Amino acid sequence: MTKDWLRWHQDYDSPNSSLARRLRVVQHDLRRALTEAPHDAHGRRRLISICAGDGRDVLPILAEHDGGRTIEALLIERDPTLSQRARTAAIGLGLPRTDVRTADAGATDTYLHIQPAHLLLTCGVFGNITINDVGRTIAMLHTLVLADGIVIWTRGRTDDGHDPSHDIRACFAEHGFIEMSFTSPADARFRVGMHRLTARPATVPPMPPGTRMFSFI
Rank of each mutant, 00 (worst) to 15 (best):
S14C: 10
L141E: 11
D109Q: 01
H42K: 03
G94S: 04
D109K: 00
E72M: 05
P80Q: 01
L62A: 11
I48T: 11
T211E: 11
A202T: 10
L119R: 03
V204A: 02
R97A: 07
F214M: 13
M207K: 05
M213T: 09
D11F: 06
D40Y: 11
P201G: 02
Q10M: 04
I61C: 08
R97E: 06
H162W: 02
M140P: 01
G55E: 04
T158V: 01
I150W: 09
E77D: 11
D13E: 14
T81K: 05
A33C: 12
R56L: 13
A147F: 00
A90Y: 13
H162F: 07
G94H: 07
L75V: 04
T102W: 02
I138N: 10
S165C: 12
G156W: 10
G210A: 03
D54W: 13
G161I: 02
I91V: 10
H42C: 02
P116A: 00
H39F: 13
S215P: 11
L82V: 01
R21I: 00
T98C: 15
L47K: 10
I168M: 14
R155F: 11
A147I: 00
T88P: 03
A147L: 05
G67R: 05
V100P: 14
D160T: 03
E179V: 03
D79W: 06
P38I: 02
M213L: 15
G161M: 02
F216A: 05
L59T: 07
A188C: 09
G193H: 09
L119S: 06
L34K: 08
N128L: 09
T70S: 15
I48G: 07
D187S: 12
L74A: 02
T198C: 12
M1V: 02
W153S: 14
W5P: 12
G94C: 04
P185Q: 03
A52D: 10
I76F: 08
R85D: 01
A186T: 11
P209V: 00
L144K: 08
D159S: 13
M213V: 10
H9N: 14
D13C: 00
S181R: 14
F126E: 09
G156T: 10
L82P: 05
D148Q: 13
A73T: 04
L74M: 13
L119C: 07
A173L: 10
I150S: 06
G67T: 07
G106D: 13
D99G: 00
G68F: 09
R136E: 13
R45T: 08
A90S: 15
A41Y: 06
L93E: 13
M140W: 04
M194I: 00
S83Q: 03
A188K: 06
R45N: 04
T203C: 03
L59C: 08
H113W: 04
T108I: 01
D167S: 12
D66K: 04
D167H: 10
T88D: 15
L6R: 10
I178F: 08
R31P: 06
G135E: 14
P206I: 01
D187Q: 11
R196S: 11
W8T: 09
G127D: 15
R85N: 03
P206V: 03
E64N: 07
N16M: 06
G127R: 01
V134F: 04
D29E: 14
R56I: 14
Q115G: 12
G55L: 04
A33D: 12
D66A: 07
S181I: 05
R157A: 01
G43N: 05
T122M: 07
D187K: 07
